[in-house]
């Protein structure tokens, strides 16, 4: 029988050490050269791979594991003009104790709110371990001056946000002003202090997977802790192939630089089945190290109840009904 060389890391030596990153990002031209030197993404092949992985059949113990994991990586989100302190407090309660009738259900990873409600969320979550994330930088369009974006960020951080979800300047990206996009991110990252920074690419406006890959690398080179697909306000948002392209990016970025970056698909993941498909994608693309709330999140609101219903189906053996779960 064959000799096994053992599992193989993607690359043994970092090819892009941090001192080289400085060179890469130094000018628009060097950034452009680097980003356009990344391998292309063939749309049909990428979608075929994602479709194949979505046929994985996750049953019994694997499904139980996946459901609990999915709950624990949710960024439970409310981002509406009509949000109020009351709505946010309810959300925080649900985040800590998703199913009041079953204490074995894990808490979600974080709640995600607008900056002006961070203080309310922070008070409501207390020492539970559930993080408070805030969108910032003139979310969702990002069409504001850098000063405004930084003020927006500083405001959320001052109110106690553990995590900041910023948006990139898609206009600048699409016309090739990569330095401008990068500088925004660098500045916001600085304003974050110890808060972790998620950089929203708004893939629905980037139009191609090539752009998604370049924007992912751009965000990571700028210091993003997470790359996030979407604001949830633009369609298409989180699709399996888009998440896959971003997972390939964090995998390759780690191999090249040694630094690990998280991925957050958000927008459009509504069912337990969708969530589990994303977990399969993580497992078989970036690898199991990313199966952790620290490195993978799903931004969602209605997903949680479907996960709870599926979970109850698995524990009781009968199908659950929506009336038995809280609406928010």
């Amino acid at each position: 029988m064959p000799h096994y060389a053992g599992a193989v890391p993607l690359l043994t030596e970092p090819t892009l050490p941090l001192d080289r990153v400085t060179d890469v990002v130094s000018t628009d031209a060097s950034l452009r050269r680097f980003l356009h030197g990344l391998p292309g993404v063939d749309q049909v092949g990428a979608e075929a791979r994602a479709a194949m992985l979505s046929t994985r059949s996750i049953k019994t113990a694997a499904k139980q594991f996946a459901i609990d994991l999915a709950i624990s990586i949710i960024d439970l989100t409310t981002l509406e003009g009509q949000d109020t302190p009351g709505k946010v407090r309810t959300l925080c309660a649900k985040a800590q104790r998703p199913d009041p009738s079953d204490a074995s259900v894990p808490a979600v990873a974080a709640v995600c709110v607008y900056p002006d409600l961070v203080a309310v969320a922070k008070a409501a979550t207390g020492p539970s371990g559930v993080k408070v994330a805030s969108v910032a930088t003139a979310f969702p369009s990002g069409r504001a001056s850098r000063a405004v974006k930084l003020a927006d960020t500083a405001d959320a951080v001052a109110a106690g946000a553990d995590e900041i979800d910023m948006v990139i300047d898609r206009g600048a990206f699409l016309v090739g002003r990569y330095r401008a996009v990068l500088e925004d991110i660098v500045a916001v990252k600085q304003a974050c202090g110890t808060a972790r920074l998620k950089v929203i690419l708004e893939v629905g406006e980037l139009a191609t997977y090539d752009n998604v890959r370049r924007a992912s690398w751009l965000a990571m080179l700028a210091g993003a802790d997470f790359i996030k697909t979407s604001t949830g306000k633009v369609q298409p948002a989180a699709t399996l192939p888009v998440t896959q392209v971003m997972l390939e990016a964090v995998r390759d970025f780690r191999a090249a630089t040694g630094r690990m970056v998280g991925v957050k698909p958000a927008g459009g993941i509504r069912t337990a089945k969708d969530a589990i498909r994303h977990l399969v994608l993580v497992n078989e693309t970036a690898g199991e190290e990313w199966l952790d709330p620290r490195w993978f999140r799903i931004g969602a609101s209605t997903l949680l109840n479907d996960l709870l219903m599926q979970r109850q189906r698995m524990t009781t053996g009968r199908y659950a009904g929506p009336d038995y779960f809280t609406v928010d």
Binding site: I58, A61, A62, F65, A66
Partner: peptide, 9 residues
């Protein structure tokens, strides 16, 4: 986290 797929025959 190790994500083992249960048999799905």
């Amino acid at each position: 986290m190790k994500f083992e797929y249960a048999p799905a025959p």
